[in-house]
Design a protein around this nucleic acid. Structure first.
Lengths: 150, 150
DNA sequence: ATTGAAAGTAAGGATTA
DNA sequence: TAATCCTTACTTTCAAT
C-alpha cells in the first residue's frame, strides 16, 4: 500500500478533526482547535499531514444540482462481455461527463453507473453512448424519481 | 417554490464561483475574486447569498472512506408494499447510519439504497434491519467490488 | 430625480504560516 | 510574529422607474 492512504496512523483527534471538516470545510483552524483541545497551528499540521497522506482528498462545496440545472439522474446496471477490466470501464466512463459514479458490483450486473444530466434527453444520450461501448452487452436503467438522501 | 433554491437567479459569475468552490472549498475570497474579476467582499456577498438561497448547501472535506475504516459498500434495490411514501422511506433510512444514499426510482424496484459500513458484517446488519421494515417486501443487493468514480 | 441592487474601498480584528 | 484574510461599514456606480 505504498503512498496510499492506508499507511497513515489516524488517532482519535484526527478522527475528530476529520468529522469537523466534513461538517464544515471552512471552519478555521482556531475553531477546530477549540473543539479538539488543540492550538490552531497543531490543527494545521495535522490537516496538512492528512492531506499529504490522501486521507483528506480535498475540500468541496455541496451544491444543489437542481439549482444549477442538473435536474435528472439515473442508475444504470451494466452487463459486460466476459473479461472487461475496471481500467477499461473507468477509461470509458471518463469520456462521458454525465457519469458521476461508477462501481463494479457483485450480483447479476457487472457494474453500476450513476448518471446526472440536465434533463431526460441528456440521460438518454449518455445511455446511448454507454450502450455503444464495445464491451457493453446490455443495460438496465433506473431513473431517479426523487433523491431522499445523498 | 418558497424558500427553495429555484427562486434564485444565478448568473455566469455565480456559476464560476460555484465551480471554484467545488474545486477547492478553502479558496480565499480574494483568490476566487482574482479569477472571477471581482473584489473579495463582492465574492463574499455572492457566496453568502448562494448559501442563504440553499444553492450552496455547505462545504465538506472529501475523505477516503477506506482510510477511516469504511471499507465496504453496497447498493440495494428495495421492493415495497403498494403505497409507501417517500417520507416513510426517508424516515426509516435515517434510523440506519449505514444509509448514505436513498432514491426512489422507476423500473422494477421502488427505491435504491446506498449503504456504507466498516465491513461485510456491517452491510449485512444494515440489510437485515432494512428487510425488517414493515413496508419492505423484498430486496436485491449489489455489493460494491471497486469504486472507480465517485 | 430617485430608488435599489451590486461593486469597490478602507479599516479593524481574526487567522494563517 | 509578520503577513494574509475575513468582515463590516461606507461610498460609488448604474440601471430602471
Amino acid at each position: 500500500m505504498r503512498g496510499g492512504s492506508g499507511s497513515l496512523r489516524i488517532d482519535d483527534i484526527d478522527q475528530q478533526i476529520i468529522a469537523l471538516l466534513q461538517e464544515d470545510a471552512r471552519y478555521s483552524y482556531a475553531e477546530i482547535g477549540a473543539r479538539a483541545a488543540l492550538s490552531a497551528p497543531a490543527v494545521k499540521r495535522r490537516v496538512d499531514r492528512l492531506r499529504a497522506g490522501k486521507v483528506i482528498k480535498g475540500f468541496t462545496a455541496i451544491v444543489d444540482p437542481v439549482a444549477i440545472g442538473w435536474t435528472t439522474e439515473a442508475f444504470v446496471e451494466l452487463f459486460c462481455t466476459g473479461r472487461t477490466s475496471p481500467t477499461q470501464l473507468s477509461a470509458a466512463a471518463k469520456r462521458h461527463p454525465a457519469v458521476v459514479g461508477l462501481f463494479t458490483v457483485s450480483g447479476e450486473a457487472d457494474a453500476l453507473v450513476h448518471l446526472r444530466a440536465a434533463d431526460i434527453a441528456g440521460i438518454e444520450q449518455a445511455l446511448e453512448r454507454l450502450r455503444a461501448e464495445p464491451f457493453v452487452t446490455s443495460t438496465r436503467s433506473m431513473i431517479v424519481l426523487s433523491r431522499l438522501i445523498d
